[in-house]
């Protein structure tokens, strides 16, 4: 892009972008630069002295079992968020799109959990998962599946899956909402045409509706992956990363190091690592998806 705008259109575009870019620089670039700088220092968060330590904070993290465990948990969350809440949201939207009585009521119910603050989600699911008298264990016992009941939030091997259940409940409403709107956006003629050609509902969905849902899908998948990397609130409100780090993700670890242990420098190194990891995992994906939309448009 040359510095002198070539046309009235380009000038307008630059004017439109000025305010967002200005805000972005102040509220994102500057804090990130501050974090990168801090990650090279040893600082307790309160002292006037910050000691430069080079890459020591990074060296201390990488290879540490606690750090690796959190990275793996983040990756597991990405895999989960891309598939489960998204899949359930799509399925519910597709079923409800068939024109069912009480549609509005179902729509409200599926969206409801998404409106709840994280701290309340944590408190509610602490009861759901209470291992002896909670709703989940009690229900399983009632239907004769008591053997499947687990120490949901207390077993290091189970806890992340349990939290995923709570998060699926919390966030599926978002995927549902976007997919439902997307399905309603599909012109009726496309569906009719396919039906006249004798396609079954199943075929029509996958061959006609689903490809036309691309714009919705891009949004849902992109946001899900990002939420998975940034995940913090619900874990902090429910287990604080425990027991013994089992459910810890990077954002939780960063918080614990910064304010639980007065290690701001190391916490910043976790933050920067998280940023880099997110960029590596997610940016190519978003880029790819964005290009696909453009290509589809150009055709």
């Amino acid at each position: 892009m040359s510095l002198i705008p070539r046309s009235r259109t380009a000038r307008a575009h630059i004017l439109f972008l000025a305010v967002p870019i200005l805000l972005f620089g102040a509220f994102y670039i500057y804090p990130i630069a501050a974090s990168v700088r801090l990650s090279l220092h040893d600082w307790n968060g309160f002292s006037p002295d910050q000691r430069f330590v080079g890459l020591r904070n990074y060296a201390a993290l990488w290879g540490q079992p606690r750090f690796i465990n959190a990275v793996l948990n983040n990756l597991a969350w990405v895999a989960f968020m891309l598939t489960v809440p998204t899949g359930i949201g799509l399925a519910l939207a597709a079923i409800l799109d068939r024109g069912i009585r009480g549609e509005t009521m179902f729509r409200i119910i599926f969206f409801l959990p998404f409106t709840i603050p994280a701290v309340s989600v944590g408190a509610i699911w602490r009861w759901m998962y209470e291992p002896s008298n909670g709703l989940l264990t009690t229900t399983l016992e009632l239907v004769g599946l008591g053997g499947l009941a687990q120490n949901w939030l207390g077993d290091p091997d189970i806890v992340t899956f349990a939290l995923m259940g709570a998060v699926a409940w919390w966030t599926t409403g978002f995927a549902f909402l976007v997919f439902f709107a997307g399905l309603r956006n599909i012109p009726e003629e496309c569906i009719e045409a396919a039906r006249i050609e004798g396609g079954s509902d199943w075929q029509i969905f996958w061959k006609v509706s689903f490809p036309l849902l691309w714009p919705s899908t891009i949004i849902v998948l992109g946001i899900s992956a990002i939420d998975a990397m940034r995940l913090f609130d619900v874990i902090w409100a429910t287990t604080k990363g425990g027991p013994a780090y089992a459910s810890e993700v990077l954002a939780v670890q960063m918080y614990d190091l910064a304010f639980g242990r007065f290690q701001m420098g190391r916490a910043s190194a976790v933050a920067v690592s998280l940023l880099v990891l997110s960029a590596v995992v997610i940016m190519p994906y978003i880029w790819y998806m964005t290009r696909r939309v453009q290509d589809a448009e150009v055709e």
Partner: peptide, 15 residues
């Protein structure tokens, strides 16, 4: 108690 690690202290107090 069984499953103690999955409870909060108030849940155990309730028990």
């Amino acid at each position: 108690a069984d499953n103690w690690s999955g409870k909060t202290w108030t849940q155990t107090a309730d028990d």
